[in-house]
Each structure stands twice: as C-alpha cells, then as structure tokens.
Computed example of a mutant assay.
Amino acid sequence: METLNRERCKSLQPHGVDCHLLYLVDGSGLQNFQMNSRTIFVTNEDDEIRMILDREQYDCITVSSDYLMLERLRGLGYRGPIIYEAQGLGSYSAARAFLHDAKIYIEPHAAALLYPNTTHLKSLFTEIYPGKKHYCFDNCLDTENFSYRSLGFSSLPIIGWVGRIESNKNWQMFLDIVTKFTRLVPDYKIWLFEDDQISPEKELFKSRVEQLKLNSRIESFANVPHHQMADYYSMIGDSGGFLCSTSVMEGFGYAVLEAMSCRCPVVTSDSDGVRSFVTHNLTGKLFAQQDVNGAVAEAFDLVCNLSLREFIRTRAITRAREQFSPQLYANRFLSMLKDLV
C-alpha cells in the first residue's frame, strides 16, 4: 500500500487533487516519503484523527484494508463518501473470510469499493457486495523515474526475490527453486530484499537456509529505500539474472511490475494479480503454483535462450509504460471521484 499511496499522490497532484495520508503506526515504508506534516499523519489516537478531519474537511476518503476504520471515521464525525479499497488480502480462502467479516462495516459505511483488475478480488467483491458501487482498475507506476539505469555488470548473475518472510510470499518455494536451479547453473548469487519489521517467519527461514546450505549464496537487504530498488533491479537484469516471485496470491504485485520497468526479467508464480502485466514468454515467465520443477525449467530457459530473454526485457518495459501510466490511473481515479463527490 505504501508504494501505491506514493504513486497515487504523484499521479493526482497535477490534476488539482490534494492527497493526505494517515498511517495508524510508524513503519519502514515511511522512509520513502519526503515527510511533510501537512500531508502525512501517523497516529492511532481518536482525538488527533478527529482534529485532522475537522481541520481538513476532506471531500472523500479512501480506507485501505482496515475495515474497522470505516465505522471509526463515522464515529469521529466524517459524513462524506468513503471508498473501501483492497489491494491484496492473502490467499483466496483468507480473502473470502476477510471480506465476509468486513461486511457489517462495509455495507453501512462505504459508498463504493475499489480494487485492482485481479480475477479473485473481482469475483469475491461481486459475490459478497452485489449492491455496492464497484471500481476496478490497474494501479500505476511512474516509469519515467523508476526505470532502468546502466550501472555496470556484476561478476556473477543474480537471482532476486522481494517480499516479507511470511507464508503468502512463499519463501519456502523460492529456496527450493534456487537450490535446484543452482545445481544446474552453479555460479549464481542470490539477493533477497525484505521488510524485516514484518517478517513473522524469519526464524523458520534462517533454519531452512542453513539446512539447504545456502548461507554463503544469499545476501539479504532489509528495508531498502524505494528509489534505490531501481538500481538493484537494473543490476539484476544486466547481470544475466532475473527476479523470482513465488507468491501464492497477489492482488497486484508491485515488485514484479517495478522489475519489468527496469529491464529485469521476471520468473513468477501464477499468483493471479501478476496476470495483469505478465504474459508468458512475452513480458515474463509464468509457472504453476507449487511447481518447483516447472519454475526451474522456465528460469533455465530464460537464462539460456538469450534472444527470448532480450525480447522479454524489451516487451516488459513497453507493457509497464503503456498499461500502468500515471496519467491513465489519474483519469480513472478522477472519473470515480466525479461519480461519488
């Protein structure tokens, strides 16, 4: 959500929409904002939130994921339209349970629902909330600024992975994939990017890394500032490596799109949300859920078939620029606001 919030604010600002952000707790993602007390608030205190609402008189509020906030905002006096937004809610069963639990808060308090163009979210929201206004469109990425950078070549090719160390990101499968892949192609480095403040299975991960004897191969990066990730993706792509994504279910999957924007080819599980931007053998490589051997085969084809690899890198960056432009997102978001405000 932190990435989307930044991208959304940037895309809407040129159109005269002043976006303010409220985070209930501090976190590593806030390092990516140029902090301004007028537009970014971090508080979970009712009195402070009420003061912000009274002072700013917002025309519309979007609530992301935290459905309890819908009733809370009404209790604090906000009477304008509230859009309830979900970008990723874990596995299909977890998302279904979550949206059913949220119903007693969403039905009376949300004017509309917003979610990315993702099959499982579209299906669940349509089924559970047939009477609500629905808005479904792709997120955006500033591919002009978050893009490929020529920084020289690594001495060895690199496999990258980005995510929290938790079950939905499926780090176990990633370790199995790189173990098998590096038996076929030994001279590879592994770069792992994580948010170590929200990685609940870190100890299990460490134990499994040791068991597989991957300690010497893996270099971990914690809480890298967002703008620096373009450097890392570019280096992975130029090294002859790739980004591997193993998520069970994604609402969108920003890391994959960001890698594509930086000419870093992607080998990813078919986690639903990535279908918006990854077309197999056109803009990336897809493999079936839990199919380790299939993932290894696709990765091997990507690194050995140099003409296909270059074709994918070129088509991927074109897809990122054309389908996920800030202007396109702003047009869709503004159209939604005109319906509601």
Rank of each mutant, 00 (worst) to 15 (best):
D196H: 11
L212D: 06
A230F: 02
S245V: 14
M229T: 13
E203N: 11
L214E: 11
S220A: 04
F242K: 03
G253W: 06
E201K: 13
E203W: 03
H226T: 00
A255T: 09
T246Q: 04
E210G: 11
E210T: 15
C264D: 01
G241S: 07
F242H: 07
D196L: 13
Q211E: 15
S269T: 15
C264A: 08
K213P: 00
C264Q: 02
F205T: 05
V267K: 14
K202R: 11
M260S: 06
D196G: 12
M260H: 10
F242Y: 11
R263I: 02
F242T: 06
K213Y: 00
D196A: 07
L214G: 10
F205G: 01
P265V: 00
K189Y: 06
D187G: 00
M229P: 06
K189P: 01
G253N: 05
D238A: 14
F193V: 05
Y188A: 10
T246W: 03
E201G: 00
L192A: 09
D187I: 02
G241T: 05
S199M: 10
E194C: 13
E203L: 12
Y254R: 08
L192D: 02
P200D: 12
V266F: 02
E210I: 09
P186A: 05
V267R: 08
N215V: 08
Q228P: 01
M235H: 07
D187F: 06
P225D: 10
E203C: 05
E210L: 05
D196N: 10
P186K: 11
N223V: 00
S199G: 08
G251C: 07
L243S: 05
D238S: 14
D195L: 05
K189F: 01
D196R: 13
Q228M: 13
Q211I: 04
S261T: 12
S216Q: 09
D195C: 04
R263N: 03
Y188M: 10
P265T: 00
G241V: 02
E194F: 03
M249C: 07
V209D: 04
P225Y: 05
G253T: 11
I218S: 10
K206W: 10
T246Y: 01
D231M: 09
R208M: 14
D231R: 11
V266R: 01
G240V: 07
Q228S: 11
F193H: 01
L243K: 08
Q197K: 09
D195H: 04
D238E: 15
S245M: 13
K213V: 03
Y232D: 02
P186S: 01
V256K: 03
F252H: 04
Q197H: 13
C264T: 01
I218A: 06
K206L: 15
S216Y: 09
I218H: 03
V256E: 08
R208C: 03
Q197T: 15
V267N: 15
L257N: 06
R217T: 14
A259I: 07
V256A: 15
G240S: 12
W191M: 09
N215S: 11
S199T: 08
L184K: 15
R208I: 13
S261N: 08
D187T: 05
E258G: 07
P186E: 10
L214I: 07
N215I: 02
R217K: 15
K202V: 14
K206I: 10
L204Q: 12
S220C: 10
F242I: 00
L243M: 09
W191F: 14
R208N: 08
D231N: 14
F193D: 08
